[in-house]
């Protein structure tokens, strides 16, 4: 009597499947760029992971880059986005500088203390993104002004949202991808939007380095 019961327990325990939560449209915001005449979807392909990030070793914003990478990596359950810091900028996929942008046509945000800009280098005509991407973040006030550290943390997390493929700003103030973000972290809507992005096929392929 006991043996069949134990056998049944084994079978029942082995057959269960974990229940994945559904993601509804109300829980995510638009992440595709639909304003350039076509729908543009970009995310890093698994074959190109981890994304290689370069930031100067003595840069005052290096720790904020590390924080932003850790935050976005933690948003994913299956390693969809992974990044690592490299010491050679010539092999980097993304170059981060603590200077004002010298490109000027990227996705930008400006707060009272600091400003940031990301140039994903996407060409809608050819459906390609040319590496390396560039991220700029710099202080617009003196280092002694309170709030600069917080501004850096929020801004770098926001810019890395663009790096991983969130090409559009969130309409909600509670998200780090809001155009003028205040939220220091990654909201549930940011997280669900990012994993939704990585669950669909991109329209953009990478060119350049690699």
């Amino acid at each position: 009597m006991r043996r069949p019961l134990l056998g049944m327990l084994l079978v029942v325990a082995a057959c269960g499947t974990i229940g994945s939560p559904l993601i509804t449209s109300g829980e995510v915001y638009e992440f595709r760029d639909v304003e350039r005449g076509d729908t543009i979807v970009f995310h890093w392909p698994r074959a190109d992971l981890p994304v290689r990030i370069w930031v100067a070793s003595d840069s005052p914003i290096r720790s904020y880059v590390e924080t932003a990478i850790a935050r976005w990596q933690a948003a994913f359950l299956y390693g969809e986005f992974r990044a690592t810091l490299v010491t050679d900028s010539t092999i980097a996929d993304v170059i981060v500088r603590n200077t004002p942008s010298d490109i000027g046509n990227g996705l930008n945000r400006r707060a009272p203390q600091c400003a940031g800009e990301t140039d994903p280098n996407i060409n809608p005509a050819t459906n390609t993104a040319r590496l390396p991407m560039h991220v700029f973040m710099y202080a617009v006030v003196s280092d002694a002004i309170p709030g600069l550290a917080s501004c850096y943390a929020v801004t770098m997390t926001h810019e890395f949202g663009h790096v991983l493929g969130l090409l559009v700003h969130s309409p909600s103030l509670g998200d780090v991808m809001f155009a003028d973000p205040r939220f220091d972290g990654i909201s549930e809507r940011d997280r669900l939007t990012a994993i939704t992005l990585y669950s669909i096929a991109p329209t953009i392929t990478l060119t350049g380095r690699r």
Binding site: L10, V12, A13, A14, C15, G16, I18, L77
Partner: peptide, 24 residues
């Protein structure tokens, strides 16, 4: 040998994954 357990983690629970996966 065959063994069987159910798998889940704290982060899966926190992200509203229901139940657990049977693993043999």
């Amino acid at each position: 040998r065959v063994d069987s357990h159910t798998f889940t983690t704290d982060v899966l629970v926190a992200r509203h994954y229901a139940g657990a996966q049977g693993v043999q």
